Computed example of a mutant assay.
Amino acid sequence: MAKFRLAYFGFVPHPMFLETCAKDPDLEVIHIPLEASTAEAIQTLSSCHGYYVMAARDELPKPLHVTDELLAKLPNLLIAASYGAGYDPIDPIACTNAGVAAVNQAGGNAEGVAEHAVGMMLACLKRMPESHAAMIAGRAQDRATMMGRELRNRTVGLVGCGNVGTRVAEICRLAFGCKVIAVDPYLDADEMKARGVTKVDMDTLLAQADVVSLHCPLTPQTRGTIDAAAFAKMKKGVIFVTTARGSIHNEDDLLAALNSGQVATAGLDVWELEPPPVDHPLLHHKAVIASQHTAGVTQESRANITRIAALAFSDLAAGRMPPRIVNPEVKPRFAERYAAAFGLSLQEG
């Protein structure tokens, strides 16, 4: 049987990916250097069965995003696997049309992202960004002007209750005694209850939550969900945190909500453009604590997501259907294309 060829562009998130792949003699891993031209990169990818795809959309050159246009040039491609849980540069519909499995690494960085989200909640409630700004400006004489609030016993509203949201809920509920409510169209009330969360609709969440935290993927359905109308429905003085993806919330509308006091403080790990421009008004707002999409950038999370990505490629090389396929409707055609390429029938699990 021929080797399973896969390629990645530029760099891998952690050495664990290459170390894990090296243990599988059926994998051939090809590095496309950053300085390669688009034409050179596409030529290399055209001979590959797998493409290991950068998850951050602004890191990967647009011509190498997995779209209809790129897939038309990659006749041998069977799988496009994202570096992380997010898969912004991969169009699942385009992949389905081409018979390509789109795979993410959901759950691999859940602990890192969840800890970051809760850390931002605490920093916002204790008004750390404002206190920091006041000290820098020499306005830190009266500590009472920085009176904060505690997370304990507050209502936390999660938009999305997947791997990260579930872990956030667990921390908030068990460590701080919070009531956790959530919106998630993919989970029913019983499953949410099993995760220690009460399922509600969006209007209820926005009206009741003391802290609103985003944990959903960026899709056509979620893009722009948290806009001026959504901020207006939130409690006055709400804490807003997002470690999900930029473009789910409208940055101009958030800035207006912060300036009006509707949102008291915000913790932002994700941005419309990453990194955001240095003069971005939210970066300079006294009530914002910011990070550069680093919630999942921990040694542990990076090692885990790269290991499970490598194992997904190994599964496919061995004739097993890989896990975490985000376009499951592709499976019949995907299996046919795999059988045509390798002369093997894919086995589930």
Rank of each mutant, 00 (worst) to 15 (best):
G162K: 05
T294Q: 14
W271C: 03
R127P: 01
A56P: 09
A341V: 11
I90G: 01
I171D: 00
G138R: 08
R245D: 05
V270H: 01
A41E: 08
L18E: 09
E19H: 12
P275S: 12
C161Y: 05
G108I: 02
H293C: 06
T198E: 15
G138L: 07
S247Q: 14
G224H: 02
R173N: 13
H280D: 11
H284C: 09
H31A: 13
P63H: 08
L283W: 04
S260C: 09
S291D: 10
N259M: 09
V168Y: 00
I226C: 02
R5C: 14
A295S: 13
C216P: 00
P89Q: 08
V29N: 00
A85I: 07
P322E: 06
Q141R: 15
V263C: 02
V241Q: 02
D24S: 12
D91G: 04
A257C: 07
L27N: 01
I136D: 12
A228K: 09
G50I: 00
I239W: 04
P129D: 04
L74K: 08
V241E: 02
N163K: 14
A101F: 00
F231I: 02
R167N: 08
A244D: 03
H132N: 15
T225L: 14
A133W: 02
F240M: 04
H215G: 06
G246W: 05
L125N: 00
N304W: 04
T166L: 10
H14I: 05
G108F: 01
I79E: 07
V278F: 14
I171V: 12
P275N: 11
G165E: 03
H65R: 15
L346R: 06
G224L: 07
H280Q: 08
M135W: 11
A102I: 03
C124P: 03
L218W: 03
G10I: 10
M202Q: 14
A137T: 07
H116E: 13
Y87C: 06
M54V: 12
N327M: 06
E274I: 06
T294G: 13
K23M: 13
I248Q: 04
L344T: 13
N259D: 15
